[in-house]
Every structure is written in structure tokens, then in C-alpha cells.
């Protein structure tokens, strides 16, 4: 199958989420499978699949699906992404009014489906790769909140890598007075832009209902 679990950690959520994903893609040929070795141990909550362009439902283009998306993002990457991506898992959640707190590489982000976030560079991920973020710390919907201790079991955030890019240049100017020492170095941090496609799997965990 195209999903391979990386760096198996002790989280129960990961092992439970794997069969759920693989069952959704029964007709996928084996050719496109790929494993990505993340160097950083803290990225171990990611699992990554390459998009498979051979499957038959070309209609679901994910780009301008949500109205709150920022204008800059959708058209920057290459055009074929419109027919490549179809993930059956993203249809289940109610699209509106759900957010999650997800941990990516020891940083926590509040994610909302349809929007993009910049993360630290996800090594080995290519553009249009689908990634599944398993370390979901909190899911909030309009009526209830699912608080993970520390993670929400079985919850997953589905995302697509949109672009691997470099951040803006930072001038690193080191200077020591009276020692005739100065260094002027430019630095551009490699980052990754991912677009959140959906949040799944949180429904059957205990929730706190809200007024």
C-alpha cells in the first residue's frame, strides 16, 4: 500500500489510523508508494503518501473549495494539481466550523480546513504529497470540543504539501566590539507550505459539549 508508518511511536492513534486510510484506497496501484524518512524525531507523527494520479475521479479539485482561503495560495503551484488529488477521506467531516490543534515537528498549529500553514521543512516530502498528521491535540467544532490527553485518539488532519520554499532572508550580523570581528551572513530557512484538507476521526472520542 501507499502508506507506510514512520518511526512508530507509542501513540495509539497512529496504528489505529493506518487501516482506516488504506481501506479507502483499495484500487491504488502499488507503483506510487513512497516512504519518506524524516530526520527529525519530532516529525514522527507524520505519515506520508504520494498522490496517485491514476484514480478515476477527476472532479474534486481542492483549490478554491473554501471561501476563507487566502488569495495568494491556490494558483501558485502548478496547474495539474487540480486533477491529481482525490482523497476519499476528506469528504466526511463537516466542512464548516471545525478546527484542530496539531503538532508538527514540536510546534503546535491551529489548523482550519481549507487554509494553508507554513511549517518547518518536511524533509523528503514532495509537492502534492498527501500527509496525515496524527498528533492532534485538540479538535473543536461548533458544538463540542475534543480535548486530547495528550492526543485525541484516531483523530487525523489530512494535508497536502503545496510548496517547498525558503523563508525570507535574515541577515545574521555578528559583531564583537574592540576585537575586530564581524560576520555578515545571509540565511534563508527552508520551510514548507501545506494546505489543510480535512480533519477526521475525532467523532467517537469523548467530547465536552459547549453551550
Amino acid at each position: 500500500m501507499a502508506t507506510l508508518s514512520l518511526c512508530a511511536s507509542s501513540l495509539a492513534a497512529k496504528s489505529a489510523a493506518a487501516p482506516a486510510l488504506s481501506s479507502t484506497t483499495p484500487s491504488m496501484p502499488l507503483s506510487q508508494s513512497q516512504t519518506v524518512a524524516f530526520l527529525c524525531h519530532s516529525l514522527s507523527s507524520l505519515r506520508l503518501t504520494t498522490p496517485c494520479s491514476k484514480r478515476g475521479t477527476p472532479s474534486s479539485s481542492f483549490v478554491p473549495k473554501y471561501s476563507e482561503t487566502e488569495a495568494a495560495a491556490p494558483s501558485l503551484t502548478e496547474p495539474p494539481e487540480t486533477e491529481i488529488v482525490e482523497s476519499p477521506v476528506q469528504q466526511q467531516p463537516k466542512k464548516e466550523e471545525v478546527f484542530a490543534v496539531v503538532m508538527i515537528g514540536s510546534r503546535q498549529y491551529i489548523v482550519i480546513p481549507g487554509r494553508y500553514i507554513y511549517t518547518q521543512r518536511l524533509k523528503g516530502a514532495k509537492e502534492n504529497d498527501k500527509i496525515i498528521l496524527n498528533k492532534v491535540l485538540l479538535v473543536g467544532t461548533k458544538t463540542s470540543t475534543y480535548i486530547g490527553k495528550p492526543v485525541v485518539p484516531n483523530a487525523a488532519v489530512h494535508a497536502v504539501v503545496e510548496e517547498q520554499l525558503l523563508d525570507k532572508k535574515v541577515i545574521v550580523f555578528k559583531y564583537k566590539k574592540k576585537k575586530n570581528y564581524r560576520r555578515n551572513i545571509g540565511h534563508r530557512q527552508p520551510i514548507t507550505r501545506i494546505r489543510i484538507m480535512g480533519i477526521t476521526g475525532y467523532e467517537d472520542s469523548p467530547a465536552v459539549t459547549l453551550p
Binding site: 503546535q108 491535540l137 485538540l138 480535548i147 490527553k149
Partner: peptide, 14 residues
């Protein structure tokens, strides 16, 4: 005590 590991950035946003 409850082992909730949300960090301070997220908590403040919430």
C-alpha cells in the same frame, strides 16, 4: 495533571 500538552501559544489563541 491531566496531561494536556497544549503550549502557551495555542492556549492564548484559544
Amino acid at each position: 495533571k491531566e496531561n494536556i500538552q497544549l503550549n502557551r501559544k495555542v492556549l492564548s489563541e484559544l
